[in-house]
């Protein structure tokens, strides 16, 4: 077990190293001048050159990288050139919003995908046809466009969704911060008005993120359910006299959902990538919108920090999946001990 943990850690460290390197190099070789971006088109060439040297951009790439890494090791993620706010501070303010959105979207997409997948694996062809058409549309639709359509329908036309700005209505005071997740904090404070308002704000962006993934996942669940139903132990369960409901819930699903678990890492990465645009569309005060603006402004520090964080989340999740897989599948659990 210790061996497994150590090799996992080494792998994670190397992933982080390469991610930081790639982020660093890509940003610096892309065209444009951050100093010019900060000072605007009117600034003099001399002012720009002074700022460049202040930013350290006049040093060679390896030198810059060494500075960056040594700051990083000391826990300094840098400061945004655009807002002058330390990246670490901004990040910790914004992370809860993004995680709240991503987790909600993930749960929503799983909740949609499993029943749809199982039903389309079933006897009725019509259900499968509808879900397949839905999946093709869901997968072919760009998330930001879907977000715009949802805003148009539910906010502009029907007026049942709140305005797509932020996590709460303007006038509402956020609950005292415990976890940073509004849904949790408002419940802890017993403030149901804030809770329902936060939920309403969360609904559209979460749906926007969840639908394409649900479309994808439902097809996987369908395929894997069909495959499991062909296996001998399903026949054994029936031969014992188990009813169809029991065959499905006790015998088929626990096996059919294993591949879904394997894909969940990949899947969460998709969610984070998707949140970039969706947060921008809904003006969600999370990391996605922030990093999107930072990219446009050539604000290096936030972008580097977010890429590094993404890599960290990704490696952690994939390690967690391995552990979870062991819990779900006794063949792996006992092979390890």
């Amino acid at each position: 077990m210790a061996k497994l943990v150590i090799s996992r850690l080494l792998a994670a460290l190397s992933v982080l190293f390469f991610a930081s390197l790639i982020a660093f190099v890509l940003l610096r070789v892309s065209p444009g001048d951050p100093a010019r971006q900060v000072l605007g088109p009117q600034a003099s060439a001399q002012a720009v050159a002074e700022l460049r040297s202040e930013m350290g951009l006049d040093q060679s790439l390896p030198q810059q990288y060494v500075t960056y890494v040594s700051d990083l090791v000391r826990g300094d993620l840098g400061t945004s050139w655009r807002t002058r706010v330390p990246v670490a501070e901004e990040l910790s303010n914004r992370i809860p919003a993004t995680i709240e959105l991503a987790v909600t979207a993930m749960l929503l997409s799983i909740a949609l995908a499993i029943p749809i997948g199982v039903l389309s694996a079933g006897r009725r062809r019509s259900i499968d046809r509808i879900s397949r058409a839905g999946a093709i549309i869901g997968l072919g639709t760009p998330p930001f466009w879907l977000g715009l359509v949802l805003i148009l329908v539910f906010f502009t036309w029907l007026g049942i969704a709140p305005a797509p700005f932020g996590r709460l209505d303007e006038g509402l005071a956020p609950p005292s911060e415990v976890t940073g997740f509004l849904l949790v904090d408002s419940l802890l404070a017993g403030d149901f008005a804030v809770f329902s308002n936060a939920l309403a704000h969360l609904a559209l962006p979460a749906i926007t993120l969840a639908l394409p993934l649900a479309a994808y996942l439902s097809r996987i669940v369908r395929r894997s359910t069909i495959d499991v139903y062909r296996l001998d132990y399903i026949r054994t369960a029936r031969a014992k006299g188990a009813g169809e409901r029991r065959v499905l819930f006790r015998h088929a699903l626990p096996n059919a959902l294993l591949p879904v678990l394997t894909l969940s890492t990949l899947y969460f990465g998709e969610l984070l990538a998707g949140s970039l645009l969706v947060e921008a569309v809904f003006n969600w005060p999370g990391i996605g919108g922030w990093v999107a603006q930072s990219i446009v402004a050539q604000d290096f520090a936030p972008v580097q920090a977010v890429i590094l964080m993404g890599a960290l989340v990704y490696t952690t999740l994939s390690a967690m999946t391995d552990v979870l897989y062991g819990v779900a599948d006794p063949r792996i659990r006992t092979a390890r001990t």
Binding site: R235, T236, A237, R238, G241, R250, N255, R331
Partner: peptide, 25 residues
């Protein structure tokens, strides 16, 4: 018919590994 299976007629199959559910004791 479901009740007849198991209660009146028990069945065993060719491949006992694939015929047992791998995730259940």
């Amino acid at each position: 018919l479901r009740h007849l299976r198991g209660a009146t007629a028990g069945m065993i199959f060719q491949d006992p590994l694939s015929s047992l559910n791998p995730v259940k004791r």
